[in-house]
Write a protein that binds this DNA or RNA. Structure first.
Lengths: 192, 192, 192, 192
DNA sequence: AATGAATGAGCCTTCATTCAT
DNA sequence: AATGAATGAAGGCTCATTCAT
């Protein structure tokens, strides 16, 4: 019998390697061989598990988005006060697991991939919709009908912060990112 | 019979074609031949004028940034009131010459190119610094020392709006973009 | 729990699967995995039993040729009249076990394999020689020294019929094949 | 201006090289690089002119079939006597331009390709139909309604001769091939 | 100035083969 | 005996780049 249960391990290693490689090179123009080498396996195995390069990239994008959703839900759990829930979403959005130079660089590459890949666009839209829905839901008790609009601009600001920090010379600054976004929400509230 | 003075015409045509091609495909993975064909010239000529593919891409990025700077200066000219100058900068940022689906897509691709190309990063940083300086300068009479910070978040929001609209299913909405950003500035001003 | 005596069963299954797969795809460009899957075993086992892909192909070719020889001998057994023996050889040549679309397609592929594989060529030559010898032997009482030549053209016609029927849009027509060849033999006999 | 009019030269060289390479190796498993090297050009150029490997193979097959048709028409031209026309078709079928070991090997490979390639099958069918039609037309004045059937078996014999000679240890024997086939036709004629 | 023919490096992908279990 | 995980060599194909004309 062959080695059992390697698949999940290999898949995870390849996905991590994909994000790391894209992050390190700053581009989707990474080769399957580079990814495989970083994961410590052969290029053939990468195809064996994912099918093709596009599938590897999309799996990595999916992984980042899933981790993002997880972080937000994790922060939300147990928090009931409206404002606290807003804070949770924003803090989750900049959780260290995703808000690292390497991952942000991959992030931005996947955003742009959404311009040319149907599946990537679908993934992006799910993420974008969910973020806005989460924010709007948390904001409604605080600002009523203004929630949707405020959620929308806040989501745009979050993306802008990602973009700016991703292109910054310095490592992403979690504190500052959270503060900037929460300030925006606070000043956007009628009686802040 | 070689036509005199063709060079500037060819260069401009190739740059426009580059932006259009990247915009249409949503990716930097366009071939020199595709660009050349769109410009109505041979691929050899593209190399002759620009040296190589990277140079073509950077020239296109430079062109977009130059056009951006031009639009902002154009809007600013003649305006002296502080708030009006803020409006000018924001409106210039979303001028129709740049804020079209095709160009925004190229825009985003160039942002990401800055992650892997030194020259692209340099160009991006010049743009980012200038935008913040313009905004801070216009805001200082209105919010004093808070100007730098407000300029910074505003710039981030502008980038976020670009990103969001670039990935939207609809054509970029200039009106809405300007409103969102100006609202942010307004609410960020102490007694707005 | 290893089953005893599985080897002959596995080998037979793999050989059948090889012929079926080549027949179905019409090409030797079948993968070992496809063959193994059709045989219901792993690709590793195919190598275990045969050594390599070439050995599998040659074993399949050998199997077809052996089955061919068997069919002819089977038809010949008990027949003593010269003409009846000629009929036996021709009918054996188009026995249903081999003269099916799928097998004929494999057949033709093996013919062509003989152009590039020494062992395949050897197998083909043995088959070709034996067919001519059988025919000549049966024909000698009927046409004397003309037997060798008539056997030769008859063998060529048999191959031609295989080729034509293999490429026909319809399923191989056994009746017609036998008639065509026997007619040729008959008209080739001085006082037929 | 670049070198003009190279295309037909290159295409011809590549097609010749394809036939030679397939003939020499006895298999369609030749690489584009091998073909290109034999033609004295780069592999990229082969793709440039033909699109892909399949297109190269089909172009070579088409070329052989076209040359075959040409040879037959060439032999037919000027001949009006029925039997002379039959001879012309048969002699054209074994014209030296095609009936060489190398080309016959390619021939056989293309036959088998027709089992798996729609376009190759189409080409084969056109050839097969035309050969039978030519033969039947020439035979009708000689054997009346029997012409169709005699043409059919003759065509099958021609293919069989190709196959047998292609797999023979010796170079194709044009004389013998023609004699075998014409003998078959002659004996198939009522009062031969 | 301008072309497009031509090159060749490099990538994705497939697949025969090996091997640990 | 049997599996299928894993490898890596090799091929088709693309495309930036060069160059003769």
């Amino acid at each position: 019998m062959p080695k059992l249960g390697m698949e999940p391990i290999r898949r995870a290693a390849l996905i991590d390697a994909t994000i790391a490689e894209i992050g390190a090179r700053g581009s989707l123009d990474v080769t399957v061989s580079q990814i495989a080498r970083r994961a410590g396996v052969s290029s053939g195995l990468a195809h064996h598990y994912f099918g093709g390069k596009d599938d590897i990239l999309l799996a990595a994008m999916r992984h980042i988005l899933a981790r993002y959703g997880l972080e937000v839900r994790c922060q939300l759990s147990g928090r009931t006060e409206p404002w606290s829930r807003v804070e949770a979403i924003v803090e989750g959005s900049f959780a260290p697991s995703n808000f690292r130079a390497e991952v942000v660089a991959a992030w931005l590459n996947f955003y742009v991939l959404a311009l040319s890949s149907d599946e990537a666009r679908r993934l992006y839209r799910v993420y974008a919709r969910r973020l806005r829905a989460n924010l709007a839901h948390a904001l409604r008790p605080l600002v009523g009908d203004h929630a949707v609009m405020l959620a929308d601009t806040t989501a745009q600001l979050i993306d802008g912060v990602y973009l700016t920090q991703g292109l910054s010379a310095n490592a992403p600054d979690r504190q500052s990112a959270v503060r900037v976004v929460l300030d925006h929400v606070r000043t956007g509230m009628p009686e802040a």
